[in-house]
């Protein structure tokens, strides 16, 4: 384990920035945190959640796929993939780090999504342990340990320094480039113990997941509860856009004036035209769309991924839904607890 004092953090970030694009969570004027490219004067926010999850780094809101030049009956196709500059993300929380391995299961399975893969290979994740998990956090429900997050390097914020520990080969390589001061784990261990006590008392920390999973497909799909659960859903899609594990996308063409650009962008299963075809729509009402989102996380994803759930308990959908609907309410209601 190594450490870096708060005073020296800026020079460390400067050093990292020489070779990498460095991103850190910083507070904006709206009082909320966002990952931004680090530059002198930007400080690391202590907020647990950034408004937009860290999935943006690997699966951005939109990216170009190809461009076309049309000339009479002829078409010219140009690959729009770009070289990715190596980058480091500092301060990613345990829930968001786990979301990467969930996205990996989708984008790195055959046939590999080369857009995602290129970014994944060039990105180094420095995670940051949580000390004051909030009432809306329930990552522990899904077996995530926020005191010892995954990532290439994990970090803890101490009283006057950050502690860093290499996890993967990539992480260790970066750490050795930085040549930081060796130290012992005393403060870190004490912090972990302390945080664990808080985690034990979190209201949503140990939700029962036994009623969910791939083998519960029919009974959950046919539940009468979906009607009341989905009743007030606005279909705004906020929950899907802030969610670190939501990965649905659309492919669209854009006339640039001198050709056509094809790009992909986030889409939402909460939208009415998501599955609409020329001759009909299998999800006609918000009930079906709402059900799809939660069935995907709690049933379909585990069915295809050896039982792993498609939620990391980050709490974003609890904080952001305008009608205060969320996955926790859905789980509790389906189980008959609400």
């Amino acid at each position: 384990m190594v450490k870096i004092s708060f005073e020296k953090l800026n020079s460390l970030f400067e050093k990292i920035s020489e070779k990498y694009d460095l991103f850190v969570p910083t507070k904006k004027n709206d009082g909320q945190s966002y990952f931004e490219k680090w530059e002198q004067g930007k400080t690391v926010s202590d907020d647990l959640n950034t408004v937009r999850s860290a999935k943006d780094f690997f699966f951005p809101q939109h990216e170009d796929i190809v461009s076309f030049k049309l000339d009479g009956k002829n078409i010219e196709i140009t690959d729009e993939r770009r070289e990715v500059r190596p980058f480091v993300m500092f301060g990613v929380r345990a829930c968001d780090v786990r979301s990467f391995s969930i996205l990996d299961k989708v984008f790195l399975s055959e046939p590999v999504d080369t857009f995602y893969k290129a970014k994944r290979e060039k990105g180094i994740v420095i995670s940051l342990a949580c000390q004051k998990p909030s009432e809306t956090c329930f990552c522990t429900t899904f077996g995530i340990d926020p005191t010892e997050p995954e990532g290439d390097i994990r970090a803890w914020k101490g009283n006057d320094c950050y502690y860093l520990e290499g996890v993967t080969e990539k992480g260790n390589a970066l750490l050795s480039e930085l040549s930081l001061e060796e130290c012992d784990r005393t403060e870190v261990d004490a912090q972990i113990e302390n945080t664990k006590k808080i985690l034990d008392r979190l209201p949503l920390g140990k939700l029962d997941t036994d009623s969910f999973g791939g083998d519960k497909l029919k009974e959950l799909f046919d539940s009468e509860k979906w009607a009341s659960l989905s009743e007030s859903c606005l279909g705004c899609g906020t929950c899907t856009f802030v969610c670190p594990t939501c990965q649905c996308y659309d492919i669209k063409d854009f006339e640039t004036g001198h050709g056509v650009k094809r790009y992909r962008c986030w889409d939402s299963c909460m939208y009415s035209d998501f599955t609409k075809m020329a001759h009909g729509n299998p999800r006609l009402t918000q009930l079906e769309r709402f059900r799809q989102r939660f069935m995907h996380k709690l049933v379909y994803f585990p069915a295809n991924n050896s039982g792993e759930f498609g939620c990391v308990g980050c709490g974003r959908c609890l904080n952001k839904c305008p009608i205060s609907m969320n996955i926790v309410k859905v789980m509790k209601t389906l189980k008959g607890e609400n």
Partner: peptide
């Protein structure tokens, strides 16, 4: 199987 659009159940 990645854009999430064409599923029937799982």
């Amino acid at each position: 199987g990645k854009c999430g659009r064409c599923n029937i159940g799982s």
